[in-house]
């Protein structure tokens, strides 16, 4: 049984369709990220799941129970908001224990649970502090502890780390993942950060214009994107506009060959115009493509070149020995490491 199932959900506000025929299935204990650019509908989908946004069509169910029209307060979902929504008139401990007040627990019992939760998010002993006395990262941890306090059936995270610096984001997302695994809690996180989604999630739903373009494991999305949008958004940002004619792939503008060899039978496509996305290590030395080297540097164990092609900046692996600071690069592409998508429109 799924922890959460979204079937053909649509949200329309006025004449504007925010979500169109969205389907999503989250297994118990699974960490799912909704990834997409601003305005793609990922927060609306999360709010629909939480019951904060009514759906125009479709159904949402949790553990087999239809919750489409169930009020938010009865869904028993925990949620961490982008603004965190911490109650500034309460101290840290009272914030964390606030959801427990309705369970009829004694104050001692509530505080004991609250302290344990603060301990879990590495804020033990700070319960008496006010919200104004803590850092952004600590506030994030308080919001997480508060969302966990009511032992939610599903945890929803709306861009929880967007206001933090890169190092803290990485630290906190790892902590969230560790806690999630420990509690075997289904989590749905909204993010526009590809790294964040790919590193912590079991599954990622890439959203575009109110639809889920592709839903799968991070590896599936990275290695076999099913659309140009997913390939572009997931991080293979080097892009060429190509034309395929009689098995020969050439760049559309310059008409230079992308690869010296023809396409293999696996790579066969119909003649036409294509969007080609390639990773930095897809470059080969036998090709006709040209780029102007801007600089080269070592990124981890890889030597990478930053080069300009027309008005586009590309990152490719440095396969040229003793490269000067400025040079004209000539290269081809290993099509087995590239993704071709018919150009739309």
């Amino acid at each position: 049984m799924s922890a959460l199932q979204v079937d053909n959900v649509e949200v329309t506000i006025g004449d504007h369709a925010i979500l169109q025929c969205v389907n999503l299935q989250v297994a118990p204990g699974e960490f799912v990220s909704l990834l997409g650019p601003s305005g793609c509908g990922k927060t609306t989908l999360l709010r629909s799941i939480a019951g904060l946004q009514s759906v125009s069509a479709g159904a949402i169910s949790a553990y087999g129970e239809d919750i489409t029209t169930m009020p938010t307060e009865k869904r028993e979902f925990g949620m961490v908001f982008q603004s965190l929504a911490l109650f500034s008139h309460l101290n840290l401990l009272d914030n964390v224990t606030f959801p427990l007040r309705r369970f009829g627990l004694s104050k001692v019992e509530r505080n004991r649970k609250g302290e344990a939760l603060l301990e879990k998010v590495h804020l033990g002993g700070l319960g008496k502090r006010s919200i104004s006395q803590i850092s952004g990262g600590q506030a994030q941890r308080v919001a997480l502890a508060r969302a966990l306090a009511q032992e939610p059936r599903v945890l929803l995270l709306d861009e929880p780390f967007s206001a933090l610096d890169a190092q803290l984001r990485e630290e906190l997302r790892t902590e969230v993942r560790v806690i999630q695994k420990e509690l075997k809690l289904p989590v749905i996180m909204v993010t526009h950060d590809q790294d964040e989604a790919l590193t912590v999630s079991d599954k990622v739903g890439v959203m575009n214009a109110g639809r889920i373009e592709q839903y799968g494991s991070p590896d599936e999305l990275y290695s076999t994107p099913t659309s140009a949008f997913v390939a572009d958004f997931i991080g293979q940002r080097n892009h060429l506009c190509c034309s395929l004619k009689n098995g020969v792939l050439t760049e559309l503008d310059s008409e230079r060959k992308v690869t010296c060899r023809g396409l293999s039978s696996r790579e066969q496509h119909q003649d036409g115009v294509y969007d080609l996305f390639f990773e930095p290590d897809a470059v080969t030395r036998d090709g006709e493509l040209e780029a102007e080297l801007l600089f080269h540097k070592k990124v981890g164990r890889q030597q990478q070149c930053c080069a300009r092609r027309g008005d586009q900046i590309i990152w490719i692996e440095n396969i040229w020995p003793d490269l000067p600071d400025q040079a004209s690069l000539k290269f081809g592409l290993d099509l087995s490491l590239c993704h071709l998508f018919p150009k739309l429109g």
Partner: peptide
């Protein structure tokens, strides 16, 4: 911040409690 009331709703509280306590 409208998410103050919304977060209290996700914690299971109704409008009266949210108004008085949040």
């Amino acid at each position: 911040d409208p998410s103050l009331a919304e977060s209290a709703r996700t914690m299971g509280y109704g409008p009266a409690t949210i108004f008085l306590r949040i």
